[in-house]
């Protein structure tokens, strides 16, 4: 990488009691990258996203955003400085309408106007083919639509970096392809995307770079073909029953 990294992770360690979920991870992400993060179950993918997003405090190491240390900041602050994230188990506001779900983040930004937010929300819902559900309660959405709504809510924040945790879990193949296009579009607009999935087809089809974790360590980082063929990656997956 020639340019300075947008997001840099240095010697990141996270322990839960006796469990070492991350064992000193170093990673750099340039602005506009679309990076896949893979690894067997329990390898630390979600934990890494949770620390970048401010949900967990790191046990050691640091995270730099545009060269500034940002660990210790709350999820709220991080959302406001441009880190958006989706959740492995969707956190849609079920008793709010789809449109209201979209408005929450936009209106939480200081100085936002309700009318502009509503207009933009409807436009984004249109691009996600959720427009006709705008006034329905979000509880009625299918699993895949809920994932799309999470995309939409994040888009309303104008994020610089987006962390997607298993966005394709339980999603119908047609809808998956629709999601690929949205992710590509988003990325083409300059947004950095870190995509966690154990859906290898999706990861290798979408990403220009893949990072593999195993037992809290980075075991491979590079072009998709190289990572796919890496003996360490093959071994990590063969040794794990849960691998996709």
């Amino acid at each position: 990488m020639t340019t300075a990294p947008q997001l840099e992770i240095r010697d990141l360690v996270k322990t839960f009691g006796g469990v070492q979920a991350l064992r000193g991870i170093n990673l750099q992400f340039a602005q506009g990258e679309l990076v896949g993060l893979i690894g067997p179950n329990g390898s630390g993918k979600t934990t890494l996203l949770n620390i970048i997003g401010g949900y967990y405090a790191a046990t050691g190491g640091e995270i730099l955003l545009d060269g500034m240390r940002c660990n210790g900041r709350s999820p709220v602050e991080l959302a406001r400085i441009g880190i958006g994230r989706s959740f492995q188990v969707t956190k849609v506001f079920k008793r709010l309408s789809v449109l209201e779900n979209m408005l929450v983040g936009a209106l939480a930004l200081p100085g936002s106007s309700r009318r502009e937010a509503e207009e933009r929300a409807m436009a984004v819902l249109g691009s996600l083919q959720l427009m006709r559900l705008a006034h329905q309660p979000a509880s009625g959405l299918s699993g895949g639509q809920a994932k799309l709504l999470e995309f939409g809510r994040i888009m309303m924040l104008h994020p610089k970096i987006v962390l997607l945790d298993e966005p394709f879990g339980g999603v119908h193949p047609d809808l998956k392809r629709f999601m690929y296009d949205r992710i590509r579009e988003w990325n083409a607009g300059g947004v950095t995307i870190i995509l966690v999935s154990h859906d290898m087809g999706s990861i290798f089809g979408l990403c220009q770079r893949v990072v593999a974790l195993s037992y809290g360590d980075v075991i491979a980082d590079g072009l998709p073909e190289a990572v796919k063929a890496d003996p360490a990656v093959l071994e990590a997956y063969l040794g794990d029953h849960h691998a996709a």
């Binding site: 997003g53 406001r80 994230r85 956190k91 849609v92 209201e100 939480a108």
Partner: peptide, 19 residues
């Protein structure tokens, strides 16, 4: 709206910048 978002999911609300 923020109140209800918090009721539905605190972490989800925080991830969208709700205090």
């Amino acid at each position: 709206l923020f109140f209800q978002a918090i009721r539905e999911d605190e972490d989800g609300a925080a991830s969208l910048g709700v205090r």
